[in-house]
Design a protein around this nucleic acid. Structure first.
Length: 430
RNA sequence: GGAGAGGUGGCCGAGUGGUUGAUGGCACCGGUCUUGAAAACCGGCAUACCCGGAAGGGUAUCGGGGGUUCGAAUCCCUCCCUCUCCGCCA
C-alpha cells in the first residue's frame, strides 16, 4: 500500500507510474480526490463537535464537584452525541472506501525498471555458464523421471488429482538433498537465519503481504470452525509477517531469514498451461529468502539477495540468466524484480526458477513493520525483500534435464553428492 | 473438549467512572560532574489522523467490536489472543 499523503501530494507521478505498468490511472484512481476531500471534511466536522462536547463534560464535572445542578448541560451534550456518531459513521465509510482504493494501487516501479508492455520487454542483465552439449536429443524431465521410476503422476492423480506428483526413491531423496544443500549454503555462507514457520496462516497475514484481498482465488482456503486459515503459497507470507505490527531495533537491520516450506497454489486460471511435468503444481517445495532492510540499503540488499540465489545454480553448475522484469511484468507489490531463469535443455528454453523483489515500504506499510533508528525516537517503515533460493521442484527439473546421459541416467554434480549419497541416478526397478 | 487467570506506552509494571495519554522503573536522547568511563543528579522521550504557511491547536488510541453514561483504561455484552490446570492426542 502506498502512503495516503504521498499519493495526494504526488498524483501526477502516481499516474505516470501506473501508465508505465500498463494500467489506466483514471480507472485505478477513480474518485480519489472526492473521497479524500469528503473524508477529511467529515472528520473535521466530527472532531470540532467532539471538542465542544469534551469541554462541556469538563464543565459538568466542575459543577458537580461544587454541588451545583448541571442538568441543562447534560441535556445539551446528550443531544450532540447522535450528531457526532452520525458524522463519525460517515467518515468511517469514506475511510473504508479510500483504503480499498489505496490498497488497489500497485507499488510504483523504481526508476531503474525498464518500461515495457509485456514479458518480451524484460531486459537480460547477465548470463552465467554455458548450456550443456548433447550428442543425442535431450529429453524433458517428465519422460526421464518416469523412465527412471522416480516420478509418478498416475498414482499422484489417484491420491489427489491433477497437478500433483509422487516422488520415489532417489527422486524423493533429491528433493531433500536440494533443500538441505540450499539451507546450509544460505545459513552458513550468506548470513540467513533458518526459520520453520506455520504452513497455515490467518487472513491478516495474507493481507500483510498482499495475497489478499486480490488473489484469493489462487489460494487454498481451509475452514476452521467459523473462521478460516490459508495454506501458504510461498514462505514469503509467514516470513515477512514475522515482524507484522512490530518495531525492529534499527541496529539489527538488515534481518535475513530463510525457510524451507511446501507452497500451495490453486493455480486458478492457468488451466492448460505447463500441464506436463512438475513445472506448475498445486504443491511444491521451496527455500525462500526474506530480508528486512533500512530504506537506504534495500537496493544493495536486492543485489545481494539475487546473488545469493544465483550462487545455488553456480554451485550446481547450471546455466542461467538474470532478467529485470519490465514495468508491465512485475507483481503489483514489487518496486523492482529480477527473475533468475535456468536453462532447461529438455524443453529448449529458459525457465523462471527464482524471483527476487524489493517491495520497498509497500508490504511494510500494509503489515505495519517498522524500525527505530539509533538515537532517534521516530519509527519508519522498513523495506522488505524476498526471493526464492530456490524453488526445489524446478531445480530438480534443471538437474535432471541438464545432467541427463545418453543411457537415460542422471549425473549428480559434486556439490550435491554427499547430500544425496549418490553420484548418479539410474533407473530403479519397479 | 472442561475449569481458571490475564491482555495497559520500546520493555516491565501501577491504575476500578471525572485534567489519566495514563504513577513508577528500565531502555533511549541531551546536560552537569569526570582525564575517560561508570555511578549519581537534572531535563527530555508514544502513535495515528484532522485544521494550520508556521507557531500551534484539536480528535482518537489502555487486545478488537458494540453498549451504559453528560463523561470509561476503569461498568456491561461479545469476539480474539496468551498463560495455568485437567482430559484427549502426534
Amino acid at each position: 500500500m502506498l502512503d495516503l499523503n504521498f499519493v495526494r501530494d504526488n498524483l501526477p507521478l502516481v499516474e505516470e507510474k501506473l501508465r508505465q505498468r500498463g494500467m489506466n490511472p483514471a480507472e485505478v484512481l477513480k474518485g480519489f480526490r472526492e473521497l479524500d476531500t469528503n473524508r477529511r471534511q467529515a472528520i473535521t466536522e466530527a472532531e470540532s463537535l467532539q471538542a465542544r462536547r469534551n469541554r462541556a463534560s469538563e464543565e459538568i464535572a466542575k459543577l458537580k464537584k461544587s454541588g451545583q445542578d448541571a442538568s441543562a448541560m447534560t441535556a445539551e451534550t446528550k443531544e450532540s452525541r447522535d450528531k457526532i456518531q452520525e458524522l463519525e459513521k460517515t467518515a468511517a465509510e469514506y475511510e473504508t472506501q479510500l483504503r480499498q482504493l489505496l490498497a488497489g494501487i500497485p507499488n510504483l516501479p523504481h526508476d531503474s525498471v525498464p518500461v515495457g508492455k509485456s514479458a518480451e520487454d524484460n531486459v537480460e542483465v547477465r548470463r552465467w555458464g554455458t548450456p550443456p552439449k548433447f550428442d543425442f536429443a535431450p529429453k524433458p524431465h517428465w519422460e526421464l523421471g518416469e523412465q527412471l521410476g522416480i516420478l509418478d503422476f498416475e498414482r499422484a492423480a489417484k491420491l489427489a488429482g491433477a497437478r500433483f506428483a509422487v516422488y520415489w526413491d532417489l527422486g524423493a531423496k533429491l528433493e531433500r538433498a536440494l533443500a538441505n544443500f540450499m539451507l546450509d549454503l544460505h545459513t552458513r555462507e550468506h548470513g540467513y537465519t533458518e526459520v520453520l514457520p506455520p504452513y497455515l496462516v490467518n487472513s491478516d497475514s495474507m493481507y500483510g503481504t498482499g495475497q489478499l484481498p486480490k488473489f484469493a482465488s489462487d489460494l487454498f482456503r481451509v475452514p476452521h470452525g467459523d473462521r478460516e486459515l490459508w495454506l501458504i503459497p510461498t514462505a514469503e507470507v509467514p516470513l515477512t509477517n514475522l515482524y507484522r505490527d512490530e518495531i525492529i531495533d534499527g541496529t539489527r537491520l538488515p534481518v535475513s531469514v530463510t525457510a524451507y516450506t511446501p507452497c500451495f497454489r490453486s493455480e486458478a486460471g492457468s488451466y492448460g498451461k505447463d500441464v506436463r511435468g512438475i513445472i506448475r503444481q498445486h504443491q511444491f517445495q521451496k527455500v525462500e529468502l526474506v530480508k528486512f532492510s533500512r530504506p537506504e540499503d534495500s537496493y544493495g540488499e536486492l543485489e545481494k539477495l539475487t546473488r545469493d540465489a544465483e550462487s545455488v545454480l553456480q554451485k550446481l553448475g547450471l546455466h542461467y540468466r538474470v532478467v529485470t522484469l519490465c514495468t508491465s511484468d512485475m507483481g503489483p507489490s514489487s518496486a523492482k524484480t529480477y527473475d533468475i531463469e535456468v536453462w532447461l535443455p529438455g524443453q529448449n528454453l529458459f525457465r523462471e526458477i527464482s524471483s527476487c523483489s524489493n517491495f520497498e515500504a509497500y508490504q511494510a506499510r500494509r503489515a505495519n513493520i517498522r524500525y527505530r533508528r539509533e538515537g532517534k525516537g521516530k519509527t519508519e517503515f522498513v523495506h522488505t525483500l524476498n526471493g526464492s533460493g530456490l524453488a526445489i521442484g524446478r531445480t530438480w527439473v534443471a538437474l535432471v534435464e541438464n545432467y541427463q546421459q545418453s543411457d537415460g541416467s542422471v549425473l549428480i554434480p559434486e556439490a550435491l553428492q554427499s547430500y544425496l549419497g549418490a553420484d548418479r541416478i539410474t533407473a530403479r526397478k519397479l
